[in-house]
Design a protein around this nucleic acid. Structure first.
Length: 730
DNA sequence: AGCACGCCGACT
DNA sequence: GTCGGCGTGCTC
């Protein structure tokens, strides 16, 4: 075994062969190798006695990073990703590694070096030491007597040791080797007050028992629990059982500010267990330290966003995906994976159950449940509250004031009078305010993107949400010279202003990404809401998810209809999920909740299902539609996305790709024509896409494995392309 | 992807 | 005369 096959984070097909030398190298070892004129980190994926590469070209592994090799499961997960999502293995492996481990200099500073005399040159070294240099002599004696020293010991013997040892190493008298890792970053222990497990409801109990009975083998579960039914309690009970066996649980959560709450809850419940959370807000060192705790098996509970699915867990006993329908589990750049699907792969490989929890599962998951591929456990009772009543305000028959109907205003007024809290929820998608000329119809658009600029009245600026471009508001229409430019559309700011003037004495809090950034942390806002220092909350997306606001009894939904116009076939599904989620915020124990949805289409089937609080009816009707229209989950999709500065380059590339596809596809594949992307130009690049549909997952994979290698052939240099397998957004 | 080599334009 | 533009070619 003199050759290591190493995968690198480079866009060329690997693996690359390297000579092993003296280092201890295993499959899974993370190594630093010379590559061209630089040094890069790679992962050893194989060992061999010989290589087909010409001997003179093979270089040597520089060093092995001072961490344990990646376990086989992690390697096979990366291999699956590479194959399924048509990505290079080396790049997939790089995604798996914590960022700290992607740097060739990792461990140079934290590494503890060991020094030993080079046997046949010891005499030479000894004679070189001047008789005055007592420290050097002591150092030499120690090296000779102890057959080796690490840097810390050496320093104790003689303060100038590091310098001298480096000098001796350079002269070849002393050998330097990694002797281990310096003490790792200390973990922060959060002092959460311990909480007791509540008594489970009959339904929760049943769910725990049924799922618990499948521990130890791969069984995919859908936990369909209406908002407020206590899914988390089911998770906690299962985690407890798994931990009692000495096994680990992986909990995946959406990418939101909610993670700390869940961590606190889990830690509070299991004060004696090691709970590790992994999310994007962590410093690199902290992330690595936590990753290490998970990888070593020390942490019993690993809770994190999509990236956490790659954490090596030696004693995995259970996987939980909370809010499994959430689109933040899909990564939309680089390796375009779906963490929920990978969680299923992981559970299947290890042989443990996976629980997909949601009040509104994705149709993919739901159809798996009703067709019996997944087991299903339902929580249909809200122990703490009744389901909210849902009403619709037909905006065609109403006077609308800054986007808010009279009916809604009246309801808000009544809510405040009762000393209760109210949430005005704005469906943000494409709902941002724009600057419009009322004389000629001109709208402020981004010069580099096919998108309108969003008006931020507070900063008097126009911003492009796609390329980040920002300019100040003009007061004169560039088309017709008119001075009467106005904001159109209900941004959260406008609604806030309107509500302020209508309810001058009410305490109004706006929660969106802008206001959160400016007014401090999200946690502080939650605190205010909890202490009932807020009467009216105005916000988007951020407010929809899993917060328990005690006095919230009224939810007003604005801009829901936007989803009904969308070209994305999933828009309806997403709207329903959002509305169910946000309605779930309303009402607690003794205070019944009300939801008011403003719409021009009160009789639309989506709204009817929402009023009945009936996910099943909604999902069944959508599934029927999807089946007859030939959409997922009944077909399997991939999208080739291309972009170029010159539109014609992009089109000719996509047409070429379509041509290659038609030569590769069998009759299970449907090829569509290249079309412009929904935002057809971003930052000056024209974007188009080509949709592929297959009647089965295997046939899609077969097709992609043949088509994908052709996509790089005769590509005009200026064209960039990516393949998105199982796209979530069109 | 990086990184260097290389071959043409406007500058101290 | 050089600094620097990005085309093109290579990486075990």
């Amino acid at each position: 075994m003199t050759i290591a096959c190493v995968e690198l984070d480079v866009p060329i097909a690997g693996p690359f062969d390297y000579e092993i030398g003296l280092a201890d190298v295993f499959v899974g070892s993370i190594v630093v190798v010379p590559f061209g004129r630089r040094r890069v980190v790679g992962v050893v994926v194989g060992l061999a006695d010989s290589s087909v590469v010409e001997k003179s070209r093979i270089r040597k592994i520089e060093r092995v990073l001072p961490v344990e090799p990646l376990p086989a499961l992690t390697l096979s997960l990366a291999a699956f990703c590479a194959d399924y999502y048509r990505h290079r293995l080396g790049q997939a492996l790089s995604v798996v590694l914590p960022t700290k481990l992607r740097k060739p200099d990792f461990g140079i500073r934290t590494l503890l070096w060991g020094y030993a005399l080079v046997a046949n040159r010891a005499a030479e070294l000894e004679t070189s030491i001047p008789s005055r240099a007592k420290g050097q002599q002591r150092l030499y004696q120690a090296l000779a007597n102890q057959a080796g020293l690490d840097a810390v010991q050496a320093r104790v013997i003689f303060k100038g040791a590091p310098r001298v040892l480096r000098d001796w190493t350079d002269r070849g008298w002393v050998d330097k080797q990694a002797a281990g890792l310096k003490q790792s970053v200390a973990d922060k222990v959060q002092g959460e007050p311990p909480t007791l497990a509540p008594t489970l409801t009959e339904e929760q109990h049943q769910a725990v028992d049924r799922i618990g009975a499948t521990l130890g083998r791969y069984v995919p579960w859908v936990l369909l629990g209406v908002t407020g039914s206590g899914k988390t309690e089911v998770y906690l009970s299962l985690i407890e059982r798994v931990a009692a066996e000495g096994l680990q649980t992986l909990v995946l959560v959406p990418e939101i500010n909610l993670t700390p709450q869940l961590v606190a809850r889990v830690q509070g419940r299991f004060p004696h267990l090691d709970v590790v959370s992994l999310h994007s807000g962590l410093a690199e060192g902290e992330r690595l330290a936590r990753w290490e705790r998970a990888r070593s098996g020390q942490a019993e509970i690993v809770l994190g966003t999509r990236l956490a699915v790659f954490t090596p867990l030696p004693k995995l006993g259970l996987v939980i995906v909370d809010e499994e329908h959430d689109s933040s589990f899909k990564q939309n750049e680089g390796l375009r994976y779906h963490a929920r699907d990978l969680a299923i792969f992981v559970a299947n490989s290890v042989g443990v159950p996976v629980v997909l929890g949601s009040a509104t599962p994705s149709l993919e998951t739901y159809s798996n449940a009703i067709e019996g591929r997944y087991q299903r456990a339902d929580l249909s009772v809200r122990p703490a509250a009744k389901a909210p009543s849902v009403r619709f305000v037909d905006t065609r028959g109403e006077r609308i004031e800054h986007g808010v109907s009279q009916t809604a205003l009246t309801a808000i007024a009544r809510c405040i009078e009762h000393g209760e809290q109210c949430l005005v929820y704005i469906n943000r998608r494409g709902f941002a305010p724009v600057l419009v000329c009322h004389a000629c119809g001109w709208m402020a658009e981004c010069r580099r993107c096919s998108a309108r600029l969003t008006l931020h009245s507070r900063s008097a600026s126009l911003k492009c949400h796609y390329c980040g471009h920002e300019e100040s508001v003009t007061h004169t229409c560039p088309e017709c010279g008119n001075q009467d430019l106005r904001g159109l559309g209900q941004g959260t700011q406008r609604v806030e202003e309107a509500l302020c003037s209508r309810f001058p004495s009410a305490r109004i809090l706006r929660v969106d990404s802008d206001s959160t950034r400016r007014r401090g942390s999200f946690a502080a806002m939650r605190e205010r809401i909890h202490l009932e220092k807020v009467d009216i909350l105005v916000g988007t997306q951020m407010l929809a998810k899993g917060h328990d606001f005690p006095k919230l009894t009224l939810v007003v939904v604005l801009g829901a209809d936007h989803a009904l116009y969308s070209s994305d076939f999933r828009a309806g599904e997403r709207l329903f999920q959002q509305l169910m989620q946000v309605s779930g915020r309303a009402g607690r124990a003794d205070l019944p909740g009300h939801v008011l949805v403003q719409t021009e289409f009160p009789q639309h089937p989506i709204y009817a299902s929402l009023a009945g609080n009936d996910f099943a009816a909604f999902a069944d009707s959508l599934l029927k539609e999807r089946r007859s229209a030939g959409f997922p989950p009944y077909v399997f999709q991939a999208i080739l996305r291309a972009e170029a500065h010159r539109e014609s380059d992009m089109w000719s590339y996509l047409k070429g790709a379509a041509h290659k596809a038609s030569g590769t596809a069998d009759n299970s594949i449907t090829l569509y024509d290249p079309v412009p992307s929904p935002v057809s130009r971003i930052a000056g690049r024209f974007r188009g896409q080509l949709l592929i549909q297959a009647s089965s997952r295997p046939s899609l994979r077969r097709f992609l494995s043949r088509w994908h290698p052709l996509l790089e052939e005769d590509r005009p240099g200026a064209v960039r392309w990516v393949l998105d397998v199982d796209p979530v957004e069109l």
